[in-house]
């Protein structure tokens, strides 16, 4: 065929998938706790590591982590990054600090943003606390913890948190 039509280079093929997402039982307990300014973890039994957020089972052993445990909303920065990359999905103004916070009483790091802190002052070992949404805006969403912020407590030596960093 000699008189072929012009070729298109590309076309746009939009995809839209609408899921009805179930948070699952373990996360449901955690999310309901947030509405009361409580951070809940779970463990397989007394003396066992506390998983925050709860995962239903201990990921190491698959053993049922059935015991809900409240942990503190204070914790220690075990590592962090300063984010300067824009993204449509991110609700924070650039630059901002993201940090893994080891909450007192927990045995897993909790990843969130850190605010009210100069960028050059953020450091591993610094003590922070959750800043909660106003009472009438507490919902079953991690954003009920708006962010973490520094508190006036001495830094935790790195040796004490190294295993979480």
């Amino acid at each position: 065929m000699s008189d072929l039509p012009n070729a298109l280079k590309s076309i746009v093929t939009p995809v839209r998938l609408e899921y009805d997402h179930s948070a699952g039982a373990a996360a449901t307990g955690f999310l309901r706790g947030l509405t009361q300014k409580k951070i809940l973890g779970a463990r397989t039994g007394p003396g066992e590591p506390v998983l925050v957020p709860p995962r239903g089972a201990d990921p190491r052993t698959s053993e049922l982590a059935a015991e809900l445990v409240e942990v503190s909303d204070k914790g220690t920065v075990v590592t962090y990054s300063i984010v300067r990359v824009p993204s449509d999905n991110i609700p924070f103004e650039l630059p901002y600090v993201c940090a893994t916070v080891l909450l007192d009483g927990a045995n897993l790091g909790f990843f969130h943003v850190l605010q009210n802190c100069a960028l050059d002052e953020v450091r591993i070992g610094m003590r922070v606390q959750a800043h909660w949404a106003p009472d009438d805006q507490l919902t079953e969403n991690v954003s009920s913890i708006r962010y973490f912020e520094p508190i006036d407590e001495p830094d935790v030596p790195f040796e004490q948190i190294e295993e979480y960093a």
């Binding site: 839209r16 998938l17 899921y19 997402h21 179930s22 948070a23 699952g24 449901t28 309901r32 079953e140």
Partner: peptide, 8 residues
């Protein structure tokens, strides 16, 4: 159990 829409 909490449920919510998840749109991709």
């Amino acid at each position: 159990v909490l449920r919510g829409p998840h749109v991709l």
